[in-house]
Simulated scan of single mutants.
Amino acid sequence: MNTHGITVLKPGLETTVQELPGRIGYLEQGFPVSGPFDKWSFRQANLLAGNPRDSASLECQFLGPSLRFDCDVVIAVTGADMRPKLDGQPVPMWQSLPVAAGQVLELGAAYTGARGYVAVSGGIATPAVLGSRAVFHMARVGGQALVKDQVLPLGPQPLGAPDLLMVPEAGRPSFSTDKTWQIEALAGPNDDWLDSASVEMFFAADWSVQAKSNRTGIRLTGPEFSFAGRALSKGSDHGQDPSNIIDHGYPLGAVNLAGQTPIILVNDSPSTGGFINPFTVASAAFWKLAQAKPGDVLRFRQIDRDEAGRLRAALETVTSAGVTVRV
């Protein structure tokens, strides 16, 4: 038995190692940023486990894993409610949990939300690839999703008795109970390729999350768009469809319009392509995209760059060590 690791008994559904800030500096070579989809829940899990808030930890999608701990550790489970159990007994989320060598953590299907996070004291010590331990599963960059009997190495355990902490309700992300999410977004960079009525329609309509959504893109179903004159009478180098444009860079969070299908480009998305991006989701709203399930409804609220900056600063504050209290 590895005395400094975690043995995967059941892998769950595409459970991956993630780390912040992700894989920075390689977009021009086609490598996405990756990293945790819900940074809020991820960072709080790390703080509760006694780690620096950006340490490598596990992201679990829709159905969580079963893990055996091969040494004494402190763990924390946050994000989607996957009804965690330790040796078959329910344990609370959003607080530090001491675990003895040999104990087994089981996570089930997500009851609320879509993605859960498991942080372990010492952090997960898989090899860094291109500067990050974050896994881009589709291309096997940084590793792949967990598999049965895999052993995940851990970093050194902290000395002394651990601080046992919890995150009060007021400091946790609030998951939608009515399957409707308000998502903050900005107009641009290509909103002028739509007519003004379609820009207004985007922010007024209900958009349903498609089942074919993942960490590359959140596909939406909703009303049809109509286009501005520049999209209908353009040079042949821009492509035939009104939503085509000459290849250009895609911002993270872009609402990429492929024909009549909006696709929100998220953590594992491509960095360039030939479709317009009429809108961009604010980075502070990504945690809500991460927790939205297929069939949930997104309603977009238009904001400007100043408000997007304020929302991001507020999220940085709430994910600092100041939101935890002793158990």
Rank of each mutant, 00 (worst) to 15 (best):
G122N: 02
G123Y: 03
I124H: 01
I124W: 00
A125Q: 13
A128C: 02
R133H: 05
A134N: 05
V141N: 04
G142W: 04
G143P: 01
Q144T: 15
Q144R: 14
L146N: 11
D149S: 14
V151K: 07
P153C: 11
P153N: 07
L154R: 03
L154S: 10
G155D: 08
P156G: 06
P156M: 08
Q157R: 14
G160M: 02
A161P: 04
P162Q: 07
D163A: 15
L164H: 07
L165G: 02
L165K: 12
M166D: 05
M166G: 08
V167W: 07
V167T: 14
P168E: 09
A170H: 13
F175P: 02
K179T: 10
K179L: 09
T180L: 11
W181A: 12
W181R: 13
A185G: 02
L186Y: 05
L186H: 01
L186R: 14
P189R: 05
P189Y: 02
L194W: 07
L194Q: 04
D195E: 10
D195P: 02
D195L: 04
S196P: 01
S196D: 15
A197K: 11
S198M: 13
E200F: 00
F202R: 09
F202K: 08
F203R: 05
F203C: 06
A205K: 09
W207L: 06
S208W: 00
Q210R: 15
K212F: 01
S213Q: 05
N214K: 02
N214F: 03
N214L: 01
T216C: 13
G217E: 05
I218T: 13
R219F: 08
L220D: 03
G222K: 10
P223F: 11
E224W: 10
E224Y: 05
F225G: 10
S226G: 02
F227P: 04
A228M: 03
G229Y: 00
R230Y: 00
K234A: 04
S236G: 01
S236D: 13
H238F: 02
G239E: 07
D241M: 13
S243F: 03
D247F: 01
D247T: 15
G249S: 12
Y250V: 04
Y250A: 01
P251M: 01
G259N: 03
T261V: 14
